[in-house]
Design a protein around this nucleic acid. Structure first.
Lengths: 344, 344
DNA sequence: GTGAAAGCGCTAACAA
DNA sequence: TTGTTAGCGCTTTCAC
């Protein structure tokens, strides 16, 4: 790869590298003629500065690292699109890593990105992460980090989340108002922020409508629906309760489609036998059988806001920064999967 | 970010940086005692070599660049998973960029990745790319590139594709055998390899079964279904033909779901009025209404094979390398969207 | 067995 | 206005 360097230009033009460097950066101290000479030559030779050299020099890279649980997921891929659209315009590159919900991989990815000198980190926690020191240490060292979606409670920084409480409340309320009495909740591991927030919204709605909360109607899936058997077992358990639920509110993409698959396989009619509302950004909710009532998160916008906050943090580091947690509205779209009374 | 360097270790241990460097790389010429001393200290201080410095030194980065049209797409996100799984195990990092099917962004991404010194490139062409010199130049300079899925005809290198011809043939054949007479084909821009291959399979099946090929039954969507109106217009045109099709074979994820959405909106009954088979890796084909007959590509495996080929190319550069094009089998899964005779 | 020095590409403090 | 030099972190000749 014989790429051209500043040195080559200097040699060709009989100048010093520093002169060339300054000319290229359009420094005021360089003679306009020299500048022109250098710039034209550089242009002609298709000179591109070596970002690695730059990074080595000042430990900056004009790139930000993104660590998310997985890419093959509507919510996260939309998130990425939001992040990229803004980052790109602001001159930053985005490096994406998947934790696959593993703590070890999250740590490994973090270390790698840091060693690669990313200027900041955008993180949605792995579901199996409970220990946060790898992030805390970095923040103490001054690395800007913004969390989104799955955020930690005990780290002080900018955070961008969906209004999970409200979204969950509305979903549950909708089921109640549609006449459902025994509403189950299928959700992610309990130590995720999204889990507790969604659970709280669910509980509050039940409470507000005078429906007693029943612990046996809530199932936590450690692998968030990625392991079919786990999903299936949880649903099975619910259906075998003395009083099986007549509605289910699922807390994520995977849990929702997994749940519908189970119903289909078992020949359980939706919404006749059981209604379902999913907290999901699946793009084909309309086309499902039956069309799926969803709580959609503004994924794209969440990504955009998070990256804006991060870049602000990167470019204007302030010790006394007021950190904010932005909570964006979700959107309940009612479709056939949750309306229609159970046939008794 | 006060990360520890070799210099720090040298100073602390009263050694030279070269000794420390050699000790860390377990060089034979270093005294075992010194080695132990250095290694233990490094371990204790949590020393991590700076990959940027290494990259600068020998223009290698142990990372590979991936350029794909988009992430928010089942096929491509599975592809990425395949790539990452292998790359990770072989000690390579994966940097992903989206071209969003724009030629300019593809070029920009390529340039950036090269300047970042990726050791090789994995590319699925943007649908609007016709000019390939940006890749050709790099290959001439010795940068290994492997193409997958959307591959160029006129570049000699490893390629990994699905057996588009066969997949397409089988889909069309299936529709014919189900009694369909007027089979339309909704597809991507004509200058993509996948388009011509799929078109060829479609034509061959028609031919083999004695059905005349009718150009007006084929529509090319320049934006591959990402622009709703385009999609809709194409379908509209078909439906308004004197003899509208009784089946449609769609060539991609987006085109397929877009098509189903149009049918739903217009109240066109599938498969009664029109059958549909999609070339798609959508994960919820089973849950759609009606369940969708699909030709699935082995996306994960395609990613794995491509990255294997690429890494082989990187680690054993051979001038006289025999390049291979691997063609992986697709899988036709028949569901309700294509079976059942049109109600006359 | 260990150290000094050069170099990867670039910038910036200091000289001229 | 331009050049010299040092340094970012690391490896690698070449000396000792």
């Amino acid at each position: 790869m014989e790429t051209i360097t500043i040195k080559d230009i200097a040699k060709a033009l009989n100048l010093s590298t520093s002169t060339v460097s300054r000319a290229l950066r359009n420094s005021y101290e360089i003679n306009p003629e020299t500048k022109k000479l250098v710039m034209e030559y550089a242009e002609r030779m298709n000179y591109r500065p070596n970002p690695i050299a730059l990074s080595l020099k000042d430990s900056k890279s004009k790139s930000i690292g993104v660590i998310i649980p997985e890419i093959a997921n509507h919510f996260f891929s939309q998130l990425i699109n939001g992040i990229e659209s803004i980052a790109y315009n602001l001159g930053y590159h985005v490096v994406i890593f998947q934790s696959h919900d593993s703590y070890e991989r999250e740590v490994a990815n973090t270390n790698y990105l840091v060693s690669r000198r990313v200027d900041g980190l955008l993180v949605s926690l792995a579901s199996l992460t409970t220990n946060l020191i790898h992030f805390q240490e970095l923040m103490e060292k001054g690395l800007p980090i913004v969390f989104l979606d799955r955020v930690p409670n005990d780290i002080e920084t900018h955070k961008v989340v969906a209004d999970n409480f409200r979204g969950s409340y509305e979903a549950t309320e909708h089921l109640i108002l549609s006449g459902r009495k025994r509403i189950a909740h299928l959700t992610s591991p309990i130590y995720l922020s999204i889990t507790t927030e969604r659970l709280a919204g669910y509980k509050k709605a039940l409470e507000d409508y005078g429906i007693p909360f029943d612990e046996s109607y809530v199932k936590y899936c450690l692998y968030g629906g990625k392991i079919k058997a786990e999903n299936e077992a949880a649903i099975e358990e619910m259906l075998n309760l003395p009083e099986p639920p007549d509605a289910i509110f699922t807390a994520s993409d995977r849990l929702t489609t997994g749940c519908m698959a189970v119903f289909q396989r078992k020949g359980i009619r939706v919404p006749d036998e059981i209604a379902i509302v999913g907290f999901t950004n699946i793009s084909v909710a309309d086309l499902l059988n039956p069309p799926l009532t969803t709580v959609m998160q503004p994924a794209m916008e969440m990504g955009q806001q998070a990256v804006e906050l991060l870049i602000r943090l990167i470019e204007h580091p302030q010790k006394d920064e007021k950190f904010e947690t932005r909570s964006l509205k979700t959107a309940l779209t009612i479709r056939a999967s949750s309306v229609g009374k159970t046939v008794v």
